[in-house]
């Protein structure tokens, strides 16, 4: 059942539009200013490359003010449809005073609660918020909501050092290695795992104490997890939220014969997915035998489609 839900969401996503709002906050020093703006520009470029179904707004420097953010999000509240997807990506510094999380921007800062109320007015059922700032863990509770994926660069408001997570999040959108299931798209879950692992490896390699621990929550709760697993009901929505997707939509131009093959492929993928969920319950040999048969059939079907 879980697999069927994922496929349905993916199918819906094909017809929907995706709206991205990237905001690079205040750097506080020329180096950070340059870094944050640079990452936001790269995000902008990678997301625009998705094609015309991607609508990307990027606010940096003096345009990343509270009033501009409010303005853009309010405008989108009237433009985005329920079937569309919406993503808000925040880069920069954040602070937490024990009560409120604040995203540091030119002029007055914006709080997590304020952002949440703006996002709640956007009709898109599938929403993604990636808060890559320091202390971003403190924003999770306010931002968490049913059908919304919330990713934070830190596990709490107490992780106050400038983060590196954003750097790897941007890398995830252009590194083919991030597409771990090799379906040509990079989902929010794949990007999260990529950035989380690269961030951990960065601290490990440099032999410095890790000052950030990314979290993901997409079950509507404020209980983010570092390693989302479907058994823990975390990561399901993120897996079905494509950030980068192949532009060519084969299904649209397929012949009836190919349509059949595509349907067969989809069915085989679903069966493989179900089998994987049953792995623990099956004898290893039996699992391997069934998996081999399905994968061979899928490979043959794909070869037919590509012929």
């Amino acid at each position: 059942m879980k697999s069927a839900k994922l496929l349905l969401l993916a199918a819906l996503a094909l017809r929907a539009e995706t709206y991205y709002v990237n905001v690079a906050g205040l750097g506080g020093s020329p180096d950070y200013e340059k870094q944050f703006t640079g990452w936001a520009s790269e995000l902008d470029r990678e997301l625009r490359a998705n094609g015309p179904a991607s609508h990307v707004i990027t606010l940096t420097g003096t345009s990343a003010t509270r009033s501009h953010i409010r303005e853009e999000l309010s405008r989108l509240a009237g433009e985005v449809r329920a079937d569309d997807a919406f993503a808000l990506l925040l880069i920069g510094h954040g602070t937490f005073d024990g009560v409120d999380y604040k995203f540091n921007i030119p002029g007055p800062d914006i709080t997590a609660s304020e952002l949440a109320s703006l996002l709640n007015r956007i009709p898109a059922r599938r929403q993604l918020v990636v808060n890559m700032t320091s202390a971003s863990g403190a924003s999770l509770a306010a931002l968490a909501k049913k059908d919304r994926i919330v990713i934070t660069a830190t596990k709490s408001g107490n992780e106050k050092n400038a983060t590196v997570f954003a750097r790897y999040w941007v890398d995830a959108l252009r590194d083919p290695a991030a597409d771990t299931d090799k379906n040509g798209a990079v989902s929010a879950l794949e990007a999260y795992r990529y950035a989380e692992q690269k961030t951990a490896a960065y601290f490990d390699t440099e032999k410095i104490i890790a000052t950030e621990h990314a979290m993901l929550s997409d079950d509507g709760s404020a209980n983010g997890v570092r390693d989302p697993k479907s058994e823990r009901a975390q990561g399901l929505l993120a897996a079905a939220f494509p950030l980068i997707r192949p532009q060519a939509d084969i299904a649209k131009s397929a012949t009836p014969e190919k349509q059949k093959l595509l349907a067969k492929k989809e069915e085989l993928e679903a069966r493989i997915d179900r089998l994987k969920y049953q792995k623990a319950a099956l004898a290893p040999d039996e699992y391997k035998q069934q998996l081999t048969a399905l994968l061979l059939e899928l490979a043959r079907t794909q070869a037919e489609i590509d012929r």
Binding site: L268, E269, I272, L291, T292, L295, D306
Partner: peptide, 22 residues
């Protein structure tokens, strides 16, 4: 190659290798 495809069933080069090995 089965492990590769278990992680990514649509991974075309691995699919082709599986067909060759089979």
């Amino acid at each position: 190659v089965l492990l590769a495809l278990e992680a990514a069933p649509d991974f075309k080069p691995a699919q082709q290798l599986l067909l060759q090995l089979s």
